[in-house]
């Protein structure tokens, strides 16, 4: 290898990839004009790149790209709809929860009222019992009075005899 080439060899790849500063680019260019060995290396790099880029770069017609976009957006909005659906179900569940709460409250109220009613009835019955007992007491008293009356009359009959 020529001594001059040594300086340029490790810059040739950078040169072919357009990674060198402008001042060095000019020096490389000047060297390539006079050195067929270095020129061949750069030419090979360029060939490899153009072949691989040619094979690796894919393009479709615009309507195919548009089709891809539509498909993506369809999938995205579909997913959003799914989200909405979940929210809707959750809302229903909350409504159900509300209905359930209402039902529980109603049941509690009914129980309270029924229980209260029963208690009230019990109290009333107790009252009735009291009155009956009082009445029985009265009847007993009446009986005693009647008996007294009877004895009185009996006593009067005896004195008349």
């Amino acid at each position: 290898m020529k001594k001059e080439c040594e300086f340029f060899r490790d810059k040739l790849l950078d040169y072919s990839m357009d990674e060198l500063d402008a001042d060095i680019v000019e020096k490389v260019k000047a060297h390539l004009e006079i050195c067929p060995d270095c020129w061949k290396i750069v030419d090979d790099y360029k060939k490899i790149n153009s072949i691989t880029v040619n094979v690796l770069k894919v393009d479709f017609s615009d309507d195919i790209w548009e089709m891809e976009r539509k498909e993506i957006i369809r999938r995205v909005t579909q997913k959003i709809d799914l989200k909405k659906e979940i929210i809707r179900i959750l809302k229903i569940l909350f409504t159900v929860k509300r209905v359930l709460t209402a039902a529980v409250v109603t049941i509690l109220l009914v129980t309270c009222i029924t229980f209260g009613g029963i208690q009230y009835k019990k109290n009333q019955e107790l009252n009735k019992e009291k009155i009956i007992i009082e009445n029985i007491g009265l009847l007993e008293n009446l009986e005693i009075l009647e008996r007294l009356d009877f004895y009185k009359k009996l006593g009067e009959k005896r004195t008349n005899l």
Binding site: L56, W65, E68, R69, I73
Partner: peptide, 21 residues
Amino acid sequence: IHAMDELIKKYQKRVYNTIYG
């Protein structure tokens, strides 16, 4: 939705080619 289309349009070739590569 229009913005989604705009963003995909801007990058879809780059993304496709990166993966294809």
